[in-house]
Amino acid sequence: MSNISEYFKDVFNGVLSLLKGMRVTAGYFFKPSAIVTQKYPENRKNLVMFERFKGEVVMPHNENNEHKCTGCGICEINCPNGTIEVIPKSIITEDGKKKRAIDKHIYRLGMCTFCALCVKTCPSNALAFSQKFEHAVFDRASLTKQLNKPGSQLMKGVE
């Protein structure tokens, strides 16, 4: 007799547990407010990334086309995978001294692992992360970027 009651208890409990699960899923079915999908290309205009989001490394320039990079090459040393290549040049300052400055700051986005070591260790805070995340390109070569803009100069007061 106990076997039979056990059998029916099994059936009953089993069905009950199934119904519990179905209540959750059916509940969501009738609750469209729970939908979390974001319509990406449509919401592009008002899509705000977090300010610390590591999209790509950039070198911020001010309105006079000046940056803070002194060409010291520390970021290149600290980068774990050779993403950054600093090509320095020497310039003559107004008081006639020879000085090291940046010629080209090459950044290869395709190799970057976003470890943030370059940004952290740059002594003059010349680098930053941008929030851009749409990196797809048709040509691999365009992933290699020059971070200092053409004709840009060192900001005043940055050593």
């Binding site: 977090f50 610390r52 989001f53 590591k54 692992t113 976003f114 470890c115 943030a116 952290k120 992360f129």
Partner: peptide, 24 residues
Amino acid sequence: FEETTGGRMLVSYNCPGGVMYDLH
């Protein structure tokens, strides 16, 4: 994670002697 560390999965948040950034 993303808000504080800038990364979602590969956070790279620690560095010897502490963490990279302060909490958001």
